[in-house]
């Protein structure tokens, strides 16, 4: 089997202790949550941290609290997240996204925080060292060309987290803690549109909590395109949420695409405001979304086709929010009802 490189392992019991270790170790250390992303990457020599700071002993990272909205500990596994009471009813989009991450086994290990900090992906990059050697590496790691677009000065690896688009659509903020203090940012602001430097998190910061506003009046959903009903990373994620008046007129709306850019792609929803979710209104914003999506030839399936279906998937999401019964479509696409 592929073997991990050597590393030191630290197992702090509190957020403070973890933050201290990070501050002390500098960029040579990385946080390890479920390890479902980081450990395979280490085996392929993408990251080779000298020190791993394990987070699983930190109880505080598993906390869930209700108050002015919902606060979710970043250390909750996706399975634990799905068991949070009321999640499905109040934050349906998040539940649908989390339920479609990877496989049941991986969801038992993988955490929400890890999912938000997931490394960007590319079929030239998610390969072992020998394979990458055979293409003389690429800009993201050990090389200098981007094979996806050789003229590109920027890495175009894909933001592949499922929960981020769903959470941004829900208006989530995240809390980042370091030895120097804590700050809160809108989740959208955590991300850079850059396949290499994809997070605005500083190396010594720990993502500790995800904060969701009260869902009053909002409905949300998440649609995921992937080849199969399980296992696969998204080729397109559509996180959508709308707040409507009693007669169905849209008062506020958020639409976020995953996996078609190096960051979750927020689509302007002005065209929906003050309107009802008619077929025409949905088609219009679908086309806007489609034109903004920039899938590249670095994930599964044909890229033109992936772009072409953006409008269809946006349509599925908005029609579901309008109240259409999308069960049959959901079953065909997701192979399960989520």
């Amino acid at each position: 089997m592929m073997r991990l490189p050597w590393f030191d392992y630290r197992a702090p019991k509190s957020i403070e202790e973890a933050a201290k270790i990070l501050a002390w170790e500098g960029t040579g250390a990385m946080l390890l949550a479920g390890g479902t992303d980081l450990l395979p990457n280490m085996k392929r020599r993408h990251q080779m941290p000298g020190t791993l700071v394990g987070l699983r002993n930190i109880e505080d990272l598993k906390r869930v609290s209700n108050g002015n909205g919902l606060r979710l500990g970043a250390g909750l596994t996706l399975t634990e997240l799905l068991a949070v009471r009321g999640l499905r009813d109040r934050y349906r989009g998040l539940a649908q996204a989390a339920a479609q991450v990877a496989t049941p086994l991986l969801r038992n290990m993988g955490t929400l925080g890890g999912n938000l900090c997931l490394d960007t992906r590319c079929t030239y990059y998610n390969q072992n060292y020998e394979w990458r050697q055979a293409i003389n590496f690429c800009m993201k790691k050990d090389g200098d060309v981007c094979w996806v677009a050789t003229a590109s000065r920027r890495c175009l690896a894909v933001s592949s987290t499922d929960t981020a688009p769903a959470l941004i659509a829900l208006g989530a903020r995240v809390k980042l803690v370091s030895a120097a203090g804590a700050r809160e940012v809108a989740l959208d602001d955590l991300y850079n549109n850059d396949g290499i430097d994809y997070l605005k998190r500083k190396p010594d910061e720990i993502l500790t909590e995800i904060l969701l506003p009260k869902p009053a009046g909002w409905k949300s959903t998440y649609w995921k395109l992937r080849r199969r009903g399980s296992f696969d990373f998204p080729l397109l994620g559509v996180g959508a949420a709308v707040k409507t008046a009693g007669d169905g007129t849209v008062e506020e709306a958020r639409l976020v695409l995953g996996a078609v850019s190096s960051h979750p792609l927020v689509i302007k929803t002005d065209s929906l405001l003050g309107k009802k979710l008619t077929d025409d209104a949905i088609a219009e914003i679908g086309e806007t979304a489609e034109s903004r999506a920039k899938p590249m030839d670095n994930t599964d399936m044909d890229l033109r086709w992936r772009k072409h279906v953006v409008a269809d998937f946006v349509g599925y999401a908005l029609r579901e929010l309008r109240g259409d019964d999308m069960g049959a479509t959901r079953l065909r696409i997701a192979k399960q009802l989520v």
Binding site: T123, Q127, W131, A134, I135, T150, G229, S230, D232, K335
Partner: peptide, 29 residues
Amino acid sequence: FRRLPAKLSGALVHRIPSMLEYKSLTSLD
């Protein structure tokens, strides 16, 4: 397989030698 632009590289590699990216049906499919 993938071949890289000939001007820059002579590479000819298996596109997806992994259990995740070589797609075969899961039980849900």
